[in-house]
């Protein structure tokens, strides 16, 4: 059982790593290493080599605008160059709206007297960070169970024992990632282009059943031991509204593939965390002298309410 869990976790971690690695590869200009926001009103450009001070200190060589507003150039107040002449910090008159990607154009970059041409760069919040914030957001801050109140039937049904809860959580995470990715592809490449949005409910529920069936079959063939451990939960997964809610949210928010993956993973892991916490608490409640009218589900609801009160502490949190 333990090995099974460890294997699953390992697989999940590897998937996440792979996803992160592939995103980090995109480069924009060979001479510019990195651009990033700093403070509320700064953009920092890191060059691969030293740039000429005369070029760097001239504000007219830069133009910066928010992506949807190419006509409105942002006013650069001061420019500072680091002693090694590799880093330029542009300070703007007004605070930047860092939620928007900014487009930075650096014309005629000169380094040691040599002109290196013009670079157009997009400055945005670290994408990895953004992905990470989607993951953490779905997992903890906007936990689907405690702050979005979804998936409750299964949540209360399978949180009585810790082992059941963990099994359910893992199974659920796998299925939701599989079905959400399938749903995303179908939505992006079939439903949306052909304006069949109204079919999304039917399509998504069909996909969920399909992926449950697929996981069931594959598991049964590939790893019967794993199937024995988790097979019983597969039937329950389909009655969980999170699994249908995630594709719907993906469709509403127009996430890209990676973001969708993060959201689905976050939703699944968040459900796992919620189940784990709830089950460990309920195992203790089993022993408590709960008033008879509250025994069983009612007290579980009250405890979930207390959880939700505690999770209010996360309200308004934005990590990146």
């Amino acid at each position: 059982m333990n090995i099974v869990i460890r294997k699953c976790l390992l697989a999940a971690v590897l998937t996440v790593l792979a996803a992160f690695l592939t995103t980090g590869c995109a480069t924009e200009h060979r001479f510019i290493k990195k651009t990033a926001f700093k403070d509320t009103n700064q953009i920092v450009i890191e060059f691969a080599g030293p740039v000429d001070e005369a070029w760097a200190k001239n504000p007219s060589h830069y133009s910066v605008y928010e992506k949807p507003d190419p006509d409105i150039k942002l006013k650069i107040q001061t420019i500072t160059l680091s002693p090694d002449r590799k880093t330029v910090a542009l300070t703007f008159a007004d605070p930047l709206n860092q939620n928007q990607p900014h487009v930075l154009t650096a014309t005629g970059i000169t380094s040691e007297g040599k002109s290196l041409g013009t670079a157009i760069l997009s400055v945005k919040k670290v994408y990895l960070g953004y992905l990470f914030s989607i993951l953490i957001g779905a997992m903890i801050i906007n936990n689907f169970v405690f702050t979005k109140y979804l998936g409750l039937c299964v949540f209360f049904g399978t949180s009585q024992k810790k082992s059941t809860a963990v099994g359910m959580g893992i199974t659920f995470t796998i299925v939701i990632v599989v079905s959400a990715m399938m749903a995303w592809f179908l939505y992006q490449f079939v439903l949306r282009p052909y304006r069949l949005n109204f079919l999304q409910i039917v399509v998504f529920i069909g996909l969920v059943s399909l992926s449950v069936q697929a996981v069931d079959t594959i598991l049964r063939k590939v790893n019967p031991m794993l199937f024995k451990a988790f097979g019983v939960y597969l039937v329950l997964v389909i009655a969980n509204c999170i699994i249908i809610a995630v594709p719907l949210i993906l469709a509403d928010n127009e996430y890209n593939a990676l973001e969708s993956l993060m959201l689905a993973l976050g939703a699944g892991l968040g459900f796992l965390i919620a189940l784990f916490l709830m089950s460990s608490v309920r195992e203790r409640l089993e022993l408590a002298r709960v008033p008879p009218t509250y025994r069983g589900l009612p007290i579980a609801f009250v405890v979930a309410g207390l959880f939700a009160l505690a999770f209010l502490g996360f309200s308004g949190m934005s990590i990146f």
């Binding site: 009250v302 309410g305 939700a308």
Partner: peptide, 22 residues
């Protein structure tokens, strides 16, 4: 109006139903 209260209300309503049954 908060989600937490939803949990409490459902829990308490269930308890009321249980109580009536008892």
């Amino acid at each position: 109006v908060l989600p937490a209260a939803g949990f409490f209300c459902v829990g308490i309503m269930m308890a009321v139903f249980n109580y009536v049954e008892i």
